[in-house]
Each structure stands twice: as C-alpha cells, then as structure tokens.
Design a protein around this nucleic acid. Structure first.
Lengths: 344, 344
DNA sequence: GCGATCTGAGAAAACGCTTTCTCGCCGGGC
DNA sequence: GCCCGGCGAGAAAGCGTTTTCTCAGATCGC
C-alpha cells in the first residue's frame, strides 16, 4: 500500500518506510553515496522504483542552495535574435543538466530590473539581454544579479562577462562592400533610438564617414521590425540613396517588400543590406546581403561563461567580442547612375 | 551592520532581528496579512527596505507547495511554430505572475518523457508539445504530469485539455483553393513520418480525394524545414503536379527558393502553398498562400486552460479545436496547361 | 473588579530534502 | 581479553519560508 504524504506525492519518507531504513539512508542511496551497504542500497532502490519515487527538486534546491536552473531576460521573444540566443543557451545548458527559465520583458524596460531580480532569485545565474536599459540602471542592478552574463552590454564589474557583437565593425564592412560596388549615396535605416547595438552601429558609421568623406551617409529614423522597413520606403526614396543599410534583417526584408510593391528592383534600382543573418535571410528574393552574427553560438558561449561563474572556476576569457562576417548575397549590386531625389 | 546568513544572502531572520520582531511577523507583513499592528508592520517594512530583503522563492515554494512556474516541453526551439506557442504562453502566464521553464527535447523523442517529468516536478503545471511521441507512451505518462495541457495531441483522460489545430480541414481548404484555380494534379510534400499533425493532414487529404475523384493527389516524402523543401524540387517536378501543398511554410519557402533557382515561376509554372502562416510568410516573394493558424493565441489559451486546472476551477471548455483560415496570397494562381512529367 | 473574549505576536511545526553529528557494532592489535 | 579505530546507519539539524498553535495582554461585560 502506497502511503501518501500530505501533498499527495510520495516522498523520501515513504521510501524509507518501505525499505525499512531512515530518510538519511534513502537520500544517500539516491545521491550515489557509496558508504551504504550494497544490500540496503539495493533494497532502497527497489522500494524507490516500486513507488516510482522521484526526489522533489524544490526540497533539494533548498537543501543544496542551488536550483540547476538559469534565467534569461529578453526584451522580446518574437525577435529572431533573442530566439537564437535562447536556443543556443538552452541547448548548451541542457547538456550540463541545467534548465532555462525565461523572462520576457516585452520591451517594457521599466520592468526589466524587477523581472531580472525575480528571475535571478529562482535561478543559479542569469543571462541578461537588455538593449534599452540605461547604463546607469545596468550598473546599479548588475552586481545584485551575479552570477551574471551580459549580452551586447558591458559593465565596469570585472566578474561580469560581456558577450558583445562588434556591430560597429560589421556596419563598416557592409558600407565598404556597397562602396566597392560603386555606391556613393548610402542611407542607414536605424534601429530603436535607445538601443545599445544601434549606438554601436552609429559609431561605426561615424568612423566610416571619417574614412570615406566622399560618400554621403544619410541617417533615417527606424525601428527593428518588418513594419519599420515596410513603412520606410518613402523616406528611403526621398533620401536619394542607392545603398540602404537596414538596422537588421527584419527591417531589410520589410523594406525589400515595400520596394517590390512600388515596382522597384533590388538590387537593380536600390541595394539593400540587413544585419544578423537570421535563418530566413538566405531565402528571401533576392537573398539578403547581410552581416552574419554567430548568434546561436553566442548563446552557447553565454552558458559557458555562466557555468564558469557558477562553478567559481577561473575564467581565462571573461567575455568575448564577436566579429560579424559579411555575407554577400543577391540583394546588393552595382550602383545605378545617381537618381534624383523623389518628391513625395 | 547587515548580518548575513550562511548563504550570503539576507533572509527573513535578518529582517526580524533588525525590526525586533519574530520571523513569523515578518512573514505576515510581507504577505499582506492585516492581523499585524500597523506600527510594527511599518517597522518591518522599513527594515526590509533598508536591507533590500526579498523573500527566497525556493523557501516559499517549499512552504506553499507551489512554484508559480509552468513548464513547456517543445521538440525544437528553432521551429517558428513552437516559438510562437512559447511566446503566447509566456505572455499570458506572465500576466498572472507565472514564469515559464522551457524544456527543449531537440527532437529526441526517447528523452521526452523523462524531460517532461523533470520539468513537471519543478513546476505547477505543464504544456506538452510532443508531436512524435507514440500514443501509447503519451497515454502512459500523461496522468503523472497533471496539471497538463496538450498541444495537437489528445488523450483519453478528461481532465487533460487538448488544444488541437484542425490540420485536416486546413489542408482540404487549401486543396479546394487550388482546384478552384483549375489545378487537377496536386502533390503533398509531407512532413515528418511520425508527426501527429502530418497524420491529420493525410487524413484530410484522403477525405479530399474521396470528394474529388477527378483530382490527382500525389504524396511525396518530406520533412519540416527549409532544406526539405529546397531538396524536394526534383521530386516535385517529377510528379508533374501544378499545385504543391507543402507540409508547412518553411518547407514551402524552401521549395519556392529551389524552384526559383531552376528558373521556374511561382505561381506561373507551379503554385505553392504552405501551412501555419508564420510571420515571414507574407514577406516571401511571392507572398505565400497558406493556412493561418492562430498559434500565438493557442499558446495563450494553453495558459488559460492550465490556469483553470491549477486553480482547480471548473473548466467549461476543456480543450478547443482551432480552424485554420485560408490566407490567399501571391504564390498560387491559375493552373497552366498540364505539363509532362520531367524525367530526372 | 474579575472572568470571559478577543487581538496580536512569538514559538514551533511543517514543507522535502541533504548532511553533519553521533553512536553502536565489528574487527584488529596488543 | 580489552581497547581503539573505523565503518555504516540513524538522529537531528539545517535550508528559508508559511502557518498553525499557543499564550500574554488588553478589552469588554456584568
């Protein structure tokens, strides 16, 4: 007869009774402690199997002071970039027996700090993606979130690894590519104003402009999704630019779609580039020229960094910098003769 | 001076000491119990604020017997369908103060049962997406996972809600649409052989064939990703079909890409349809005709069903059936005169 | 003014596990 | 034959909360 504890689930006590031993011994057996007599161990295992006993993780967590779970805070689960980070993180962590708790802030950056704190307390460590959070706030909450790994953000604390993508370099590589194709009028369809990675792109473009004074680079307001790109067609045409650097692949795809609707050819009339190299980028028509970011690998690395922190290992490489790789596809081509600006 | 418990984090005991009250009183204050003297409550709150005390969720979970967390088991986080379910689920659950723990089985269905059990024990409930699991195994493990909500699977137990998409009807709607455009030779680029939703599609096509004996419907082997579609071009051309029903949007996009490379026009030469209406479907060129599944809403509903179970509410609508909506875009068009089968 | 009632806070048990502490028992050494 | 060391298992003390139980003190009624 299976005795049931108050909660209705069988616990260590039930196994102990059935095997005629103490709680402690059951625990020892379940944890592979070899100081227990083989006969008794077998009896305990038999009892556990018969009762289908599975240790309660909450009890274990409390006793051990660890949850075997890590958290990840993302601003938007709909964004392929964060999906890819999550995927890489989850896969890598799973291989070490860790689970991932997700905290989606839905772009409400005012909630991010609280959300991060709550997630952290349930986990052994945290990966934070908070592109819109202010530096000041980040600096303030980061210490309390340790062990912590930052994605595309940095902090002064030296035990908080940062995994950053060199967006500045990537955007310069793309611009170079367009210039080599003969484009002299470029436009950057920028991302969300407060986005940290957008700031890096802008810095990169400043460096580019300094190095290429003969090239015109217009800055256009933007965002980070399809609709931004789709809605930016007028602004793009008005700019008179022949080479467009979209904030990311989503924006680029939206833009290409909008241009297509207007009967414009890509890259015949206008060259378009993205950023990130999301899985869909190579399947657009024309296939999108973009800067490939090894984003799943970044998620994986995030876990490795976090694992080192959790295990208190010496981390020889605290944080890393990822270089995007220019991926030339069919959405960029030689520049046409300069067009006149279109009047809306 | 801030006293620190053994773990280095401040606990309820520190607040109690600082406020000069007992643990119990601190707990009462933190949980909004009004049987405590306002003066003392204020003192406790001040102490808590000063120490930045935040209750340890693991301790709470153990005492309360709940974790305010739900789990979701998905076969592949890279699949947009499961990403969308996760997103809807996460958003809905977050509004009720619940978090989501993810368990990615990476298509290793032999691990699914164990994974699901482990996830369940850490959570208050589970959402299970296991399209490849056998009916027998599902039936066996489902009871032990309660509260449980199934996605696109059903079970005999009546307290396990199932949210199923009517793939059979959806595929029939698509086929009807193609027939109306004059196609008489169709081909179904099927999904993974053991996939439950693929089975439903096949059933739907059988019903369709029975109702339209004059239409030829070929079955082609397939899969569920881009590469499947891209690699199926030869088989599709050999079939001589002019209307292709791809298993899902990913396969359809891969196929369109492959056809494009061969210089074939969509829909001029061949009409292609997808399934799911993932966000990218409307941005392909040509935009993809597909059957739209309200998949994010499905994730949201999964939470509502699970919430009812967790709260032990009477659930008036245990499970629901979702009808896909035909979304006619530019990838389907009138049939050409029947082509001869191409010899590879 | 005294007993009954009620309020509010502390003591302690409970949640389910791990782990230290303790102790009985056995074997070996002298 | 006795003592000591070591081994193995039970008792008990945590882990950090919540909640029941208990009881002191205050309030009320008569």
């Amino acid at each position: 007869m299976v005795r049931r504890s108050a909660t209705g689930r069988i616990g260590i006590a039930d196994v102990a009774v059935k095997a005629g031993v103490s709680h402690a011994t059951v625990s020892r057996v379940m944890n592979g402690n070899f100081t227990v007599d083989p006969d008794i161990a077998a009896r305990v295992r038999a009892a556990a199997a018969e009762l289908k006993y599975q240790p309660n993780p909450v009890g274990r967590s409390l006793a051990l002071g660890k949850t075997d779970t890590i958290g990840i805070v993302v601003p938007d689960l709909a964004n392929p970039t964060f999906q890819a980070i999550l995927r890489g993180l989850s896969r890598a962590a799973a291989q070490d027996g860790y689970r991932v708790l997700i905290a989606d802030s839905f772009e409400v950056s005012s909630e991010e700090a609280i959300l991060a704190g709550e997630a952290r307390r349930r986990c052994d460590g945290l990966v934070l993606c908070a592109p819109r959070m202010s530096d000041a706030e980040l600096e303030e909450i980061a210490p309390s979130l340790r062990p912590l790994v930052l994605i595309n953000r940095t902090t002064d604390a030296d035990d908080i690894p940062s995994l950053v993508v060199d967006y500045g370099q990537g955007v310069q590589d793309i611009a170079e590519h367009l210039v080599e194709l003969g484009h002299t009028r470029l436009a950057f369809l920028s991302g969300p104003p407060r986005s940290a990675s957008n700031g890096l792109r802008l810095q990169g473009l400043e460096a580019f402009k300094a190095a290429h004074p003969q090239v015109e680079v217009r800055m256009l307001e933007g965002g980070s999704d399809f609709d931004t790109g789709h809605g930016a067609v007028d602004a793009v045409l008005e700019s008179g630019a022949t080479g467009i650097l979209a904030f990311n692949d989503l924006v680029a795809m939206g833009l290409m779609s909008g241009l297509h609707e207007r009967g414009l050819q890509v890259p015949g009339d206008i060259s378009v580039t993205g950023f990130d190299d999301i899985p869909f980028a190579k399947y657009t028509t024309p296939a999108l020229t973009t800067a490939a970011v090894p984003i799943t690998e970044l998620g994986e690395q995030a876990w490795h960094q976090l694992r080192a922190l959790i295990r208190k290992e010496d981390n020889d490489a605290p944080g890393s910098r990822y270089q995007p790789r220019l991926e030339v596809r069919a959405s960029t081509g030689p520049a046409k003769a300069p067009r006149q600006a279109v009047h809306g």
